[in-house]
């Protein structure tokens, strides 16, 4: 579904991605872990071109999205993204947050979009919040809404950028539960996270990134039980304690 070839990203002199090759298949759940500054968030943001790569190619469903002629807005409809800081639109109520893009892009009528939104809100247990504004909700609720907003576009893949890092500890669970449910439904997911429990439980494949490269990858069992690289062992030792 997504093929990444020799992906490179420079921020000025900073060489953040030093040639990443990856293939993500339909229905696969890929979890990206690694120390901060390892390039994992940049890698994720390159996948929908929020960051433009400075080298290499990204193919999405057979289309080279790094080609300047590619209509990235059309591609992004099929790639949902969830941010660390939720990024709900504070001036719109929850229902408008969810229906804005599908209606503006003429994918659905207002009524269809609202019905779809209500169905999704019900799934995450927040249907009674349809008419409130984002700042009236807790962080966990906001992030669940953000997931719904991305799902309302019927994406083929969901990208998660540290979705629980900005949450109070007691709210992490409710967001992870929604993500697990999504995984069970067969959604293709790429998740950058510090939640090792989630990585182990949900991930089909775990990528350990450091200094702009995928240092080691494998099933959760391989990575967490038998890491081959010294850097992986050091990192896991620090985070798992």
């Amino acid at each position: 579904m997504i093929t990444v070839e020799k992906l490179e990203k420079h921020f000025g002199k900073l060489h953040v991605l030093r040639g990443v090759d990856q293939h993500i298949s339909q229905g696969e759940k890929v979890v990206v872990i690694g120390p901060s500054g390892s390039g994992k968030t940049t890698f994720l943001r390159c996948l929908n071109l929020l960051e433009r790569p400075t080298g290499g190619r990204i193919l999405f469903e057979g289309v080279d999205i790094t080609d300047p002629k590619c209509d990235i807005n059309r591609i992004r409809r099929k790639m949902g993204m969830v941010f660390q800081q939720f990024n709900l639109f504070p001036h719109l109520n929850i229902l408008k947050n969810i229906t804005l893009a599908p209606v503006q892009l003429k994918l659905m009528s207002q009524q269809e979009a609202e019905e779809n939104a209500m169905r999704l809100l019900k799934r995450v247990g927040l249907s009674e919040k349809a008419t409130v504004f984002p700042r009236q909700l807790s962080g966990g609720q906001q992030q669940r809404i953000a997931i719904v907003r991305a799902l309302a576009m019927n994406p083929d893949v969901m990208l998660f950028d540290e979705p629980t890092s900005a949450l109070d500890p007691e709210m992490v669970g409710e967001v992870l539960d929604v993500m697990k449910q999504l995984a069970e439904d067969g959604m293709t997911m790429v998740v950058v996270t510090h939640e090792m429990g989630f990585a182990r439980e949900v991930g089909d494949r775990v990528l350990f990134m450091d200094e702009g490269l995928v240092v080691e990858e494998g099933t959760p069992a391989e990575i967490f039980e038998h890491p081959q690289q010294q850097r992986t062992r050091d990192f896991l030792q620090k985070v798992l304690k």
């Binding site: 929908n48 929020l50 807005n73 790639m79 941010f83 800081q85 639109f89 504070p90």
Partner: peptide, 27 residues
């Protein structure tokens, strides 16, 4: 207006002008 607002709009497939008009300018 936080940069994340623009990113959220663009990540949903809205183009630059739609994001400006519907999300950034009102705020």
């Amino acid at each position: 207006v936080d940069k994340g607002q623009t990113e959220a709009g663009r990540s949903l497939g809205l183009n630059g002008w739609q994001t400006m008009r519907l999300i950034v300018l009102p705020q």
